[in-house]
């Protein structure tokens, strides 16, 4: 489903005259199968977010290739990338990244609006998803009226609303307490099992990585394979 081949990327640090090149990814190669949860562990600054951003098409790598469903995102134009993301990826962010002016319902509905779905279709879909993540009671609440766990559930519902085959999670429990973290991790596992969704989770937390079928550790720009935790 996802094939990453010899991915290399360097950041330029400092002012032009004293510019220093810092390599973040030094030939990363990774295959992710359909229905798999893959966790990429790493310390802060290890390049794991860069890997996710390249995978999502937010940035273009210096070299190497990223094939998602056999399509190379790096070669796409911005407009094509947007369409591709809408059809293939759901995003779960550490800070939830909900729209403060929209209710939980409207936040979940947003990708469908962008997609141009009809009101009827949208409402049925959003209601069903809010029920699935256990938020039907707070559908009319704004993000600042929700707890961190509830906000992350809204964020997950939003990621699922367009039925993407792949979910990219960047520190999905980074802003949550340990009890809520467990709830979210269970939700991720249940979604993986019930819907067969593919997850790529970026985390620094071993606890989070434990839900993955496979773990990798990014160390000094290189991907080191961890032990296989579960069978798919």
């Amino acid at each position: 489903m996802i094939e990453i081949q010899d991915l290399r990327h360097t950041f330029a640090i400092g002012k032009k005259e004293h510019e220093r090149k810092v390599p973040v990814l030094k030939g990363v190669t990774l295959d992710v199968q359909k229905g798999e949860i893959v966790a990429i562990l790493g310390k802060s600054g290890s390049g794991k977010s860069t890997l996710l951003h390249i995978l999502a098409g937010f940035m273009t790598p210096e070299s190497g290739s990223v094939l998602v469903n056999k399509k190379e995102t790096a070669k796409m134009k911005e407009e094509e990338k947007a369409d591709f993301r809408l059809a293939n990826f759901g995003f779960i962010f550490q800070n939830f990244q909900l729209m403060p002016g929209l209710t939980a319902f409207e936040n979940v509905e947003l990708p469908l609006k962008i997609k141009g779905e009809t009101v009827k279709k949208r409402q049925a879909k959003v209601r069903g998803l809010l029920e699935k993540v256990g938020l039907q009671e707070v559908a009319d609440h704004y993000p600042n009226e929700l707890s961190g766990g509830q906000q992350q559930r809204v964020s997950i519902a939003r990621a699922l609303v367009t039925d993407p085959p792949i979910l990219l999670a960047d520190e999905p429990t980074g802003s949550l307490d340990s009890e809520t973290e467990q709830d979210i991790l269970m939700l991720i596992q249940s979604l993986n099992q019930s819907l067969g969704l593919t997850f790529v989770i970026i985390t620094h937390d071993d606890e989070v990585a434990n839900v993955a079928h496979r773990q990798y550790r990014l160390h000094d720009g290189e991907l080191v394979k961890g032990e296989k935790r579960h069978a798919i």
């Binding site: 947007a82 369409d83 993301r85 059809a87 995003f91 990244q97 947003l110 990708p111 962008i114």
Partner: peptide, 16 residues
């Protein structure tokens, strides 16, 4: 800016 970023991330085209 952040909202625009989120919209772009979840699939809004620059033209939109």
């Amino acid at each position: 800016t952040r909202e625009i970023g989120v919209m772009k991330a979840i699939g809004a085209k620059p033209k939109l």
